[in-house]
Amino acid sequence: MNKRSPVAAILRHGVLALMCIIAVIPLYWMVNSSLKNESEIFTSSFFPNAPTFSNYSYAFSQMPIVRMIFNSFGISILMTLLQLATSLLAAYALVRWRFRGKGLIFSILSLTWLIPFQAIMIPNYVLVNNMGLNDSMLGIVLPFCVSTFAILSLYQSFQSFPGVLIEAACIDGMNDWDILVRLIIPNIRSGIASLGIISFINAWNEYLWPMLITKKMENSPIQIGLKLFVNSDTNMWGSLMSATTVSCLPVLIIYLLLRRHIVDSFIKFGIK
């Protein structure tokens, strides 16, 4: 079948439309369930018979949703900035400097990427607890301030940067800090922005470690608050869906504002 034929175009667009519907249905079901009462929530109706906002009022009364969303923003932004700062310095050192044991360090970094966080979670918890950082934003961020994925990603970007320009900058008397800040970073800012978007999304979705560290609801990110409505006795599905809907709104707004950069970042790092 010719790819330019109308039939092929209709098939391609039909498949894309079906995939979009499959992706949107869970979001629609979440919003739809948040507007239903408890007796109607398990019905298969696509629209609530009597829409109610009682689930939203109950969710806001049970936990500080706004405070927890700001906590999630603070944790995600701080974690992203620290990962970008440490990965920029580490990647530049691995690419720019020649020293004994460089290959060994790069190999160890690559191997640490294969170690799941659950394997080092208990030692990290003991360390954070001994430092007195339990139930704090710094305690949540500290184990994630260095990312092997970020280092390896920027390492590839630094390697593709023309070495002739760096040599010319050295001849002009620029030091390593000026070369990194004034020469390299402005020319690879698209890659840094893509990495920052992915780091922010990963930090926003982090659940297990914040649940282990935080004790008070007002110091927790929004993902921990959602667990409040799921327990062994009674599952408040309507309130859970309403709280989840509210927690998704900030990320949805960010996506609408930066959707092109987000899609480009996933394409960029997916190809890598």
Rank of each mutant, 00 (worst) to 15 (best):
N124K: 05
S45I: 00
N134H: 11
S45C: 11
V181Q: 08
R67P: 12
M121K: 05
N231L: 12
L183G: 12
I179H: 12
S87Y: 00
E40Y: 09
S153W: 04
T80E: 04
I105F: 15
C20K: 06
G14N: 00
L127Q: 13
L88H: 03
S110V: 14
P221N: 07
I222D: 03
D176M: 02
Q118T: 13
I10E: 07
S247T: 15
I188G: 08
F42Y: 15
S239V: 02
R260Y: 09
S153C: 07
I198Y: 01
L152Q: 07
M79Q: 11
A168Q: 15
T52R: 00
N124I: 05
N202F: 10
P116W: 06
Y255T: 02
C145M: 13
W209A: 01
I213P: 00
H261N: 07
T52C: 02
K3S: 14
W113C: 07
T214M: 03
T148W: 03
I75E: 04
L114R: 07
N49F: 09
I122E: 12
D172P: 06
P210R: 03
M1R: 13
A119G: 06
M217E: 14
F42N: 14
L111P: 08
F106C: 01
N231H: 09
V7P: 01
T52K: 01
L11E: 00
L142S: 02
G74N: 12
V66L: 11
P48M: 06
L249M: 14
N134Q: 09
V95C: 11
L183D: 08
L27E: 01
S5Y: 01
V66K: 09
S57T: 10
R260L: 08
I108N: 03
I41L: 05
G103L: 03
R189P: 07
L180F: 03
L208A: 11
M68L: 09
L111E: 07
V128F: 02
M217T: 14
T80M: 04
S247W: 00
M241D: 11
I224P: 04
A91V: 00
Q62S: 15
Y56E: 00
L127A: 13
V126W: 05
M131W: 15
S220M: 04
V15K: 01
F73H: 05
W113F: 06
P143Y: 10
